[in-house]
């Protein structure tokens, strides 16, 4: 069963419930409880597809590895800041560097062949369509 189909059966949709909970807790209405995971992601849903966005400024497409298995998406990558301090003096060092790896599960099986990813202005967008085999089948009702 697709998670977003819950409300048809009178059961609250867990995604919406989570959303409402977040609104109640944070006041600003958007954020999930703070996490130590990196990178932080936003997941957008539209029926049979999910779009995952994450902010990875300065990361090249070749430095990101996206893998999909069943319902799970894994983002791996790295950012190096180059040779920071040669002879100079570093006044501030706030930007992150190093390797990252993040996995999360979507509420449906992903069609691995149709995953699409693009980088725009340092923001990664990954479109993950639901697998055809995972979609609910419509059953025709015959008249007797």
């Amino acid at each position: 069963m697709l998670w977003t189909d819950f409300e048809q059966f009178g059961i609250p949709d867990p995604w919406r419930a989570l959303d409402r909970l977040n609104r109640a807790v944070s006041g600003s209405g958007l954020l999930a409880p703070s996490t130590n995971e990196f990178p932080l992601v936003n997941v957008w849903m539209d029926g049979d597809r999910a779009v995952v966005t994450t902010e990875l400024p300065g990361v090249e497409s070749k430095d990101v590895d996206i893998s999909v298995a069943g319902k799970t998406v894994t983002l791996r990558g790295a950012r190096s800041l180059g040779d920071a301090c040669k002879e100079g003096c570093e006044h501030r060092h706030e930007r992150w560097s190093g390797n990252f790896s993040r996995s999360f599960e979507l509420p449906f099986v992903i069609d691995q062949n149709k995953v699409d990813a693009k980088f725009s202005k340092g923001v990664l967008h990954v479109t993950l369509p639901r697998a055809e085999s995972d979609k609910p089948r419509k059953i025709a009702i015959k008249m007797e």
Partner: peptide, 15 residues
């Protein structure tokens, strides 16, 4: 803010 067409935010970690 680039909201993917027709989508709603299901889970948000960053603003």
């Amino acid at each position: 803010t680039e909201i993917p067409a027709g989508c709603r935010l299901a889970y948000g970690e960053y603003e």
